[in-house]
């Protein structure tokens, strides 16, 4: 997970922003409770969005309360009152994805990166074990993503769709976990699939220059060669397509609350993030 799924604060009502922050802070607290104080540092926006989606779909309202922040005792934060499954699922997803990201970095990082990863690895591994005990399905899903990503990257003629498939399927499956009804699971699958694809592709655009320098796998380098400047419109279209499909799926979901926050993410947050990444590289 890369932290691309964010809100656009300027397009938000203050009450919605407070609610979003409450979800963020509660996930942080949940990480501390389920794993360790240090696991709070790996909190990210993608997993916050996952928690938000899970809460938006759940039947009972979480409710809010306020208490002090662990990192800044002078500040009072809003938290969700009830302990919900949504947050422990999101916390498990956070540590599991973090662990596999580390393993991936060890495989193709620079020397110092590897060193750093090796230092953190034992902690991450112990958190992952705890998470696996609680939610073995999450570990299985992320592990499969990591394995198939490794397979895909061996293909030197890899298509964009194929390269994005492992990440897309990972998010599709974790979204499916939030629903039991088979028809609705299809909607969730599609929603997660295209969000995951979008995350993967945007990350590929973001890493284009550094992957070129270090001769690492990148589907856009395979398709467009060394220069992506002339193809920036095509790249934008491939990203836009993922967002359109995700929005179509979102409209078929049973959203019970937080709809304005979800729409803020889908309408403004994602496009803003995408624009930032594309324009940064256009210069």
């Amino acid at each position: 997970m890369f932290g691309y799924i964010t809100i656009d604060k300027s397009e938000m009502l203050v009450k919605d922003y407070e609610a979003y922050k409450a979800v963020y802070c509660t996930l942080c607290k949940q990480l501390g409770k389920d794993y360790s104080v240090f696991s709070r540092f790996i909190l990210n926006y993608d997993c916050t969005f996952y928690a938000l989606t899970a809460l938006a779909l759940s039947d009972d309202c979480p409710g809010f309360c306020s208490s002090r922040c662990r990192f800044n005792p002078f500040k009072k934060c809003n938290y969700l009152k009830n302990d919900t499954k949504a947050l422990s699922l999101a916390a498990a997803l956070t540590v599991v994805t973090f662990y596999y990201k580390l393993v991936d970095n060890i495989a193709d990082g620079s020397f110092f990166e590897k060193l750093l990863c090796y230092i953190i690895l034992p902690y991450a591994s112990s958190w992952k074990k705890l998470a696996k005990k609680k939610y073995p399905e999450i570990d299985a899903i992320v592990k499969e993503m990591s394995d198939s990503q490794f397979e895909v990257e061996k293909d030197e003629q890899c298509l964009i769709d194929k390269a994005a498939e492992p990440t897309a399927l990972m998010l599709a499956r974790v979204m499916e976990l939030l629903e039991d009804d088979p028809q609705k699971r299809r909607v969730h699958h599609n929603f997660g699939y295209f969000l995951g694809k979008w995350i993967y592709l945007l990350d590929a655009v973001n890493d284009f220059e550094s992957d070129k320098k270090h001769k690492l796998f990148n589907p856009y380098i395979i398709k467009y060669g060394d220069s992506k400047k002339e193809h920036i419109d095509e790249i934008r279209q491939s990203l836009d397509n993922c967002l359109s499909e995700a929005l179509l799926s979102y409209r078929l979901m049973d959203i019970k609350r937080f709809d304005r926050i979800m729409e803020n993410v889908l309408y403004y947050g994602l496009t803003k993030r995408q624009k930032e990444v594309l324009e940064n590289k256009e210069k």
């Binding site: 397009e11 279209q237 491939s238 990203l239 836009d240 397509n241 967002l243 359109s244 499909e245 929005l247 889908l266 309408y267 403004y268 496009t271």
Partner: peptide, 9 residues
């Protein structure tokens, strides 16, 4: 082609 342009807002 329509889906390749995203401007929901």
């Amino acid at each position: 082609s329509t889906r390749r342009n995203y401007n929901p807002s």
